[in-house]
């Protein structure tokens, strides 16, 4: 018996070590650093400072502004991506010619590296040479070129558009996969019962997609909440900090102001928020067995 037990432990040891090194060590050490006054240089001189870093962060206006920007970015972009993703998935689940080709095509934007996507949209939104101004001007929708990335709130929304264009296809792919597992007979039965498109959507499709929606929402929400690269490429947090999200603030604190302790404190706050969001989603979307109440 004892021998068997030992071999069981040995078998899971490699995986445990890898997970511990790759996952637990960075998480725990971030939390530890968040209680120290550690700077990027001379880390050996750091001291334990209790909750000072958290106090500094929570009392700084910049943190709250970054939090607001992040929440706005997350809510709007994930909602838009979900809605577009859901309807394109339903569309691509229909039977029509070129179905396979189109399904392959939607992966393309999602597969573009974020950096390339950022540069692409930066040029589209360019105030003088951008395609968006050119298009809207020639259609007569705008009388004068608009400086899309030139004012704080407008710039934030334009970055969201760039992000939605790239990431809504993630929902399409996941939801399309889930849709294909739903037997056609369900929809046919609902149709026979006289259910229209909307009632079929809300009474059959959405309840059956619930687990897939939960997974993709959790993933995209946590990704959006941690967004950094597209902001770094397109606006660098500007103008006037209007697009500075929390991750960018972490980057600034850790690598520009070189206060690793405060940077780690913000990171820990971000992690807690994402964890709360994940628990919230799973609680609402996965709490019960799926049943169709037709």
């Amino acid at each position: 018996m004892v021998k068997k037990d030992a071999s069981r432990w040995i078998m899971i040891l490699p995986a445990t070590i890898i997970i511990a090194m790759a996952l637990f060590y960075p998480v725990i050490s971030t939390v530890v650093i968040s209680f120290q006054d550690r700077s990027l240089f001379m880390p050996h001189l750091s001291r334990f400072v209790g909750i000072n870093n958290y106090k500094n962060i929570l009392s700084s206006q910049e943190f709250w502004s970054a939090l607001k920007v992040t929440i706005y970015f997350t809510v709007i972009s994930v909602f838009a991506e979900f809605v577009i993703g859901l309807f394109t998935a339903i569309l691509l689940n229909q039977n029509f010619k070129m179905k396979t080709f189109l399904r392959a095509l939607v992966i393309l934007p999602w597969a573009i590296p974020t950096v390339a996507n950022g540069v692409l949209w930066q040029w589209i939104f360019d105030a003088n040479y951008g395609a968006l101004n050119g298009l809207l001007y020639q259609l007569g929708i705008i009388k004068d070129y608009v400086n899309w990335l030139g004012s704080p709130f407008l710039a934030l929304n334009m970055v969201i558009i760039a992000d939605v264009w790239k990431n809504c296809w993630f929902f399409t792919i996941v939801l399309l996969g889930a849709l294909q597992t739903i037997p056609k007979s369900y929809f046919e039965a609902a149709e026979v019962d006289g259910a229209g498109f909307w009632s079929r959507l809300f009474k059959v499709t959405l309840p059956l997609l619930r687990p897939a929606i939960a997974v993709s929402l959790v993933l995209r929400t946590s990704e959006a909440f941690k967004v950094f690269d597209i902001i770094y490429i397109m606006t660098k947090g500007g103008p006037a900090n209007g697009t500075q999200v929390l991750s960018y603030y972490v980057y600034h604190k850790s690598f520009e102001a070189m206060k690793l302790g405060e940077g780690a404190a913000i990171s820990t706050i971000i992690a807690v928020v994402i964890l709360a969001a994940a628990i919230f989603y799973t609680k609402i979307l996965m709490r019960e067995e799926v049943e169709i109440n037709a």
């Binding site: 360019d126 105030a127 003088n128 400086n147 990335l149 030139g150 004012s151 710039a155 606006t235 500007g238 103008p239």
Partner: peptide, 10 residues
């Protein structure tokens, strides 16, 4: 004066 391109801001 409107003599500087507003795109200067970004």
């Amino acid at each position: 004066y409107k003599v500087v391109d507003p795109a200067s801001i970004n």
